[in-house]
Design a protein around this nucleic acid. Sequence first.
DNA 1: AAGTGGTCTAGACCACTAT
DNA 2: TAGTGGTCTAGACCACTTT
Lengths: 254, 254
Amino acid sequence: MTQRPKNKVLQETASIDRDSFEPAYAQLANILRQSMAEGLLRPGDQLPSEAQLVKRYGVSPMTVRRSINILVDQGVVIAEQGRGTFVKPVAMKAATFHLGQLENLFGGATVQLLEARIVAADERVARKLAIKEGKRTIYIRRLLWNNDEPAFYHREYLIYDPTRPIVEAELEVTALQQLFSGSSESLLKHGEINIESTLLDEEEACLLKTPQPMAAFCFEHLFYDFDNHPVSWGWFIGRADRMRFTTQVGLLLD
Amino acid sequence: MTQRPKNKVLQETASIDRDSFEPAYAQLANILRQSMAEGLLRPGDQLPSEAQLVKRYGVSPMTVRRSINILVDQGVVIAEQGRGTFVKPVAMKAATFHLGQLENLFGGATVQLLEARIVAADERVARKLAIKEGKRTIYIRRLLWNNDEPAFYHREYLIYDPTRPIVEAELEVTALQQLFSGSSESLLKHGEINIESTLLDEEEACLLKTPQPMAAFCFEHLFYDFDNHPVSWGWFIGRADRMRFTTQVGLLLD
DNA sequence: AAGTGGTCTAGACCACTAT
DNA sequence: TAGTGGTCTAGACCACTTT
């Protein structure tokens, strides 16, 4: 282990501007992050204690705590009760991928209904939707177009609810579209999405008008209603060369 | 637009347990989330005002604000100054994919060095690493093994720094491994990672011992040091059927 | 004018860690 | 015992929206 001084003096120039529109807690968080970005505070280093920060920057303890909580939430420091607060090394446990491009793909998409029929649930579907095998489900196949190009091929199994007849318009709206539009009329409470990398099979390649073999992203989705019952299970498949997911790791400055 | 009552009475049964180990702010946040999960509070509904929550649950304004900030950060409610706080509809703008499995793959991996040599940067490499074309870089090809199976094929271009000779041990440690291990000796400050879905080419399939065609995940990475200079650019390629990324959308309860 | 969220104060008490 | 972070109070003042 390399020995480093336990505590470093931050640049005295930085201070809180009380006339700024930026709140004091945000300013202090930025000052601390800036110190890390400049290498004044390195991974493993201890941050000044709360009491020190209170004195140095002339803010109340609650404000200091809020600043530090922000850094903790961002995962750039770790606070240990009774020991101190330390700069975390860059590590990647989870990555937030921004699906902005995906949002665009769904946003302007038009929906072509390929097929919609009532089918009996086989073992696999029954298990996913938590219903009995043989119960009726609605099977829907759709093609989502974007800029006159086929963007996604979507297959979905919906719980068939005899008390709520299917409006034709509904067939043109997908669960995932609702997610992206943020419709407040959604019946969905939550869902799980899996991203997989697959090859297009013959049918998929044909519908999406791609040569074969072609790499693709597959988004498997399972959505639940407010009673925690599964509502739909399906997959969106789109050619990989139209999508990319990006994430940043480590320290981020504004 | 459907009209809903602007404000609902929450279940009076729920209250803060001052003897609990769970802090009051977390308890209150959970009570509110529970109300959403049960459908008492639906997307678009207004939450009780801070003053109301202060009275009803007998906590201070700061504690109420902290609870609500948690929900805001989680993206399940939106607070609008002067108007109120409202339940957000389920929407997916970004998705956090948990790379736990990936972590396992890297964690126990052994590294087989295939090639390491100094090469002049071509236009593409020079652009990515922000150096002049023709400058020397270290090109490394590695195979990462996991459980006696080839897991990832890694190619990487490193900035060649004549003042810092390459230790042989370094060649067996990758930037991404550092990320996963959370080594505090990392020189890395931050980086960008792209996830792509691709097909394995002949060389890749051969090294990874897969049939062809085979779908694969490709992680392109670009890492920077504390001076914001690029350090390395490369790709990890692994067969798709060994990885899966999952995310949850909407309301999450503990 | 009344009600809402946004920020902030100046402490308090507690649990935990190190010496 | 001293120092650290974790929680919480009981207000204050401000900016903003609605009526």
